[in-house]
Design a protein around this nucleic acid. Sequence first.
DNA 1: CAAGTTTCTGCAAAGGATTGCAGTGTGCTG
DNA 2: CAGCACACTGCAATCCTTTGCAGAAACTTG
Lengths: 339, 339
Amino acid sequence: MSVTIHDVAHQARVSASTVSRAFTTPEMVRTSTRERVLRVADEVGYTPNRAARGLITGKTANIGLIVPDLGNPLFPAILKGAQARALLADHAVFLADTDENPDLEVNLIKAMVKQVDGIVLCSSRMSESQLRGVLNLTDLTFLNRKVSGVPVVLIDSADGMRQAVEHLAALGHKKAAYLSGPPTSWSNRERRKGLRAAARTTGVECVELGPFAPKFEAGLQAADLVLATDVTAVLAFNDLIALGVLNRLADRGVAVPDEMSVIGFDDIAFAAMCTPPLTTVFTPKESAGRAAVELLLDWLDKKSLGHTGGTQRTLGTQLIVRSSTAPPPPVSAGSVGRA
Amino acid sequence: MSVTIHDVAHQARVSASTVSRAFTTPEMVRTSTRERVLRVADEVGYTPNRAARGLITGKTANIGLIVPDLGNPLFPAILKGAQARALLADHAVFLADTDENPDLEVNLIKAMVKQVDGIVLCSSRMSESQLRGVLNLTDLTFLNRKVSGVPVVLIDSADGMRQAVEHLAALGHKKAAYLSGPPTSWSNRERRKGLRAAARTTGVECVELGPFAPKFEAGLQAADLVLATDVTAVLAFNDLIALGVLNRLADRGVAVPDEMSVIGFDDIAFAAMCTPPLTTVFTPKESAGRAAVELLLDWLDKKSLGHTGGTQRTLGTQLIVRSSTAPPPPVSAGSVGRA
DNA sequence: CAAGTTTCTGCAAAGGATTGCAGTGTGCTG
DNA sequence: CAGCACACTGCAATCCTTTGCAGAAACTTG
């Protein structure tokens, strides 16, 4: 079928061992021999079979990456960073999409385990007990979920939320709504935490609506709930929801930002492309993907010398002010145009 | 390290062969034995090592998927479909992003070859000669690129373009611009073909601008070029470019659709979310991903009995009329508001 | 030139699973 | 009760590489 190490060995009149060494420990084989071997290998198009190699070395040079939903642009961005970083280290990546389903997540992990050196879990939706069940199956690294004893990369959502609330406060808003995301999401918990803290210090009153699925359609639904309250600003769990809100508000004839301010989260590419361009909190998506892979790889390297305990890397966020936020309307006009 | 077939064999007081058979050919092992083996396997958490299995069976139960750019929402959508279909067949997927770079594409293919049963190439940007070089490395299936002798799934872009041009003609447009995509893209060639044919039959004059990278930023750039012509409508290679055009036109104070009609291609999720909602040609992205995997898997199945020649599946498209298209402005107003 | 190093190279085992072939045990038949 | 067939199960080879160990070759040195 395909060309093996023995084919090369035979052609080059050496043993398989020598061919192997010519690739993995070149300094162990005489220059002239090595050159001949490599030339033959190149001629016949030989590349080592990684599965076979992995069998003996215990390293597959593959990593897994699991995301909740590729339909959310956040994840392709993370994935892109992760893939690029893995490529640098000459690793390939297995991808799986759980469709926001924790049980599927567990199964996908189990299926992957044997073919990878470790797995990056993005915004894992697993319960604590499910998590414990998979934790010792392989080396795991978490993105946007806090787990002790293993590498995690976190995006400082709480601080991003602080920036957003302070922005609203500075504009003069007194009352805002938070559209909550998935209850099992660490990011959502952090964002709420940041929200509550900032609400206290700034004096902005915050009501919480939801939870909502992190999707555009949920935003459409949320918008009407928002209009049923007397808030002048909305903070969405993510941009997708914010975009939905924007759309529904336009349909309902509510002007953004004049009658209602809207803030998203993540700064997906489309936040800048919609009308009005969305004020949102930038999160370093590709960097996060890169960082997660890097941490995982470092962790695996250090594994031989006993572990020093889980590493943690926290990435900053930055409010991007665009055109979906403005001072609140004068109080008398606050209820104009609503049902 | 991890639990092997021998651990199970030992625990269950049988040989490794029996454990193997309990999984792969259950009817060959006595019911009572099989149950005991499976129970033990479950208890110790054994799952067969696919790499080892692949070594002997010659099948890895993995497939590769290569895309030009995860930043284009088209590809995550395809990917999602592909991944879901692969999962159904109990296959895992390797993902790679080529960043629109053909040389990298070749290298990524070579790196993957040994770990997969076949690869799906999405909108491959490789040259003909590069393509010939990789064609016999493994089983390849192409998405949106015509290659003879192997399975391909095509999206009928030409017909989508026909629908778009006829739509413009029906609205009364006389002259339109096509913003061309990557020259190496099969889709772009098809779209141009469809455009030219429809231009002839409808009498709409079509000028071609570009080529442009299939990105938002290129659309910003293209918009000004469009305004320098006297067209009343723009057909973009894809939605990303169209969205850029929309944005730049808004900045330039050109009203869409009143002063200029804009049509995109692909119907990515955000086409419906922007303002005005974009008239665009829907392409079945997830279905295409599913179909590509399906064709590949079928192809692999049939491989044992000699091949019957490449299969080809063509998927239809559908113009989605939203709010970015309208009849052209009256002639006198045609140049109002332009530089 | 003999002896001792050093440098290369090959043999063979290992890694986890599958599978053809042969052996064990059971049940049936005559 | 002997003899046979049949249903299970185990042995051992195999897939492709890597790697410890030992032998061969080349080179130094006295």
